[in-house]
């Protein structure tokens, strides 16, 4: 992905040591898989709507009842997706360039998200590994909870065209929590 250009083009002061950080990880390889839930591909993917799992160095997230997103380094994603069965009605599309992907990490991450999204971010509703699609700052997003160690963390994925706006909207919401931009 050497020719990848993120939709976030502004530059920000970096604050990697901030307690709450927002990171643009749009360069992460992303592949969309659509399949009937009775197809062999659904069994291969092995994760039901609303959940995610790590397998073979990739993060597989079920973002819709018949839709999965595979995230990770490009070689691992390509290898994993190739191994998913093509039998039946299955489509696989590399949409790395079409989607923006951010990671928000920190104890106050949920407090930031609840300012811009009506989802219940409580641990019993949105535990580590849970996946939800919702309107975030009026942009339809896929949100995956993916804690880093003991730190609460979420992936936020939207259409590329909304990337810069969404990045700024999240930063604005996180201002009162001293959110910083991490490289």
């Amino acid at each position: 992905m050497s020719d990848f250009a993120s939709s976030v083009t502004k530059t920000y002061p970096e604050a990697a040591d901030a307690a709450l950080t927002l990171t643009d990880v749009s360069a992460t390889a992303k592949t969309l898989i659509r399949a009937d839930i009775t197809a062999a591909a659904a069994q291969d993917l092995g994760v039901a709507f609303g959940a995610s799992r790590v397998v073979d160095g990739t993060l597989v997230a079920a973002t819709r009842p018949t839709e999965w997103v595979v995230l990770g380094p490009e070689p691992q994603v390509a290898a994993y997706v190739a191994a998913v069965s093509d039998a039946g009605h299955v489509s696989k599309v590399d949409f790395t360039h079409g989607r923006a992907l951010f990671r928000i990490t920190g104890a106050d991450a949920a407090k930031v998200l609840e300012k811009v999204c009506s989802i219940d971010w409580a641990d019993n509703m949105m535990p580590d590994g849970a996946v939800v699609s919702a309107s975030l700052a009026k942009v339809t997003c896929d949100i995956i909870r993916n804690d880093v160690g003991d730190a609460r963390s979420y992936f936020i994925m939207s259409d590329r065209s909304s990337g810069q706006y969404l990045f700024d909207a999240i930063l604005d919401a996180g201002d009162e929590f001293n959110m910083g931009v991490a490289p």
Binding site: T28, A51, V54, L59, E74, P127, D128, V132, N146, D147
Partner: peptide, 23 residues
């Protein structure tokens, strides 16, 4: 059918993290 009530065996295992790459 609510979010988070999925099969626990499908849940993300938090030992291996950081899937973002190509940075």
């Amino acid at each position: 059918a609510k979010i988070g009530s999925v099969d626990p065996s499908f849940h993300y295992v938090s030992e291996s993290k950081s899937v973002e790459g190509n940075q």
